[in-house]
Design a protein around this nucleic acid. Structure first.
Lengths: 221, 221
DNA sequence: GTCTATAGTAAGATAGAC
DNA sequence: GTCTATCTTACTATAGAC
């Protein structure tokens, strides 16, 4: 393939400089790598495994990526950019909370996550993240800082506002954030496990709704 | 080493038939494998890596294990046996609940988990389990069935009893089980991540206590 | 940007001497 | 049960022709 055949590409990825990757082969390499890494882990997949599925020789891959590690970096870079859409912008938190009220605010968060996680590519990268966070400092940093900490910090700020406006019981805001979000983290990992095996996730989505209801009943005034 | 030198063994493991492994080298192989698998994952560690640390040649390892896979199986087998101590025997659940009352019952569960997880070997196997559950059906089954499902089922049964005895709000018992345990699953993964990096876990233990307090306040009558 | 060919290393596992 | 030696296969990566 000497020219880019975009018609066979499922997904357009961004490179490490956040520029769209126009080359079809490079996109296909990422697509195949994501699929295989998500099932067998980074070290369980060889360059040969990837190029075999893409339909090129090993040597051709090195025209697109300096080495195997750069493929993983690019995958995580794309994930990081996509997760930014889940949380509300912190500088507009006040206004959004006023507008929606606590219940719709939390519902909106779940909705945003589901929209992000509706993309099969993102589901697979979640899975890679879960596998690699114990081995790869970059994955760990992405999970701990970009996902866990940012989410809890955002919720804590929201609960501070809600308590100020007396729409929530005056408990410790960080405890409220943990009580709301920690069960959801477990549900997300269950959700990702099911999705990436093409199993039904209805009962997990129901659990998320039930939790939201339970939580609001317990802490909102 | 032609005789077993038990003095240098940290831990006595059981074989796949649940018999204690008396051979020091075989115990050391398991110990080193656990250490390395927990840091680099199963596929990230070679037989060579393990035998180098044990101080034997590759060929010698095959006198103790049929292949690499059998090492992992033995590790998970030991873990499965150890986790049995965390949950109360289901046939004595009634009597234990009566004796302790709901708060002490839940506290006992946390205590049992911490006792199990105080063993550095078990901390590392938790980590292996988190890494391998997406790749290895045995690991997945162990995590989903022996840990998640059993815990939730046990708690559900406990909440049925508590509602019967009117010591708990009459909510859906499965929802109560999820509300109690799901945040703890997230805390456990945080706990294991910190422990295996020899970092302090006091704030996670505090979160667990705070959650127990919050939960009891929200649902006990 | 694809290919063939190959370098150089490392993998899992076995044979057979002691 | 340990060793040396070896087999076979697989790995990441590069050189150079087209």
């Amino acid at each position: 393939m000497t020219h880019s055949d975009l018609s066979v590409v499922d997904h357009l990825f961004l490179d490490l400089s956040s520029n769209p990757i126009k080359n079809a082969t490079k996109n296909r390499i990422l697509d195949c790598a994501i699929e295989q890494f998500s099932r067998k882990g980074y070290t369980g997949v060889s360059i040969r495994d990837i190029t075999r599925e893409v339909g090129i020789k090993e040597s051709s891959l090195y025209k697109h990526f300096r080495n195997k590690e750069e493929i993983l970096e690019t995958i995580f870079h794309n994930f990081r950019l996509d997760t930014l859409r889940i949380l509300p912008p912190l500088d507009r938190l006040d206004e959004i909370l006023e507008l929606l009220g606590p219940v719709k605010f939390l519902e909106r968060g779940l909705h945003n996550f589901k929209q992000h996680a509706a993309d099969p590519i993102m589901q697979k990268i979640w899975r890679i993240l879960y596998i690699e966070q114990y081995r790869e400092p970059v994955a760990r940093d992405l999970y701990l800082n970009d996902i866990l900490t940012k989410t809890i910090d955002c919720l804590e700020a929201a609960f501070v506002k809600l308590i100020e406006h007396q729409r929530c019981k005056p408990l410790h805001p960080r405890t409220l954030a943990v009580e709301y979000q920690y069960p959801i983290f477990t549900m997300i990992s269950e959700y990702i496990m099911l999705k990436s095996d093409q199993q039904d996730t209805a009962h997990v989505e129901q659990m998320m709704s039930d939790h939201l209801t339970f939580f609001c009943m317990a802490v909102l005034v």
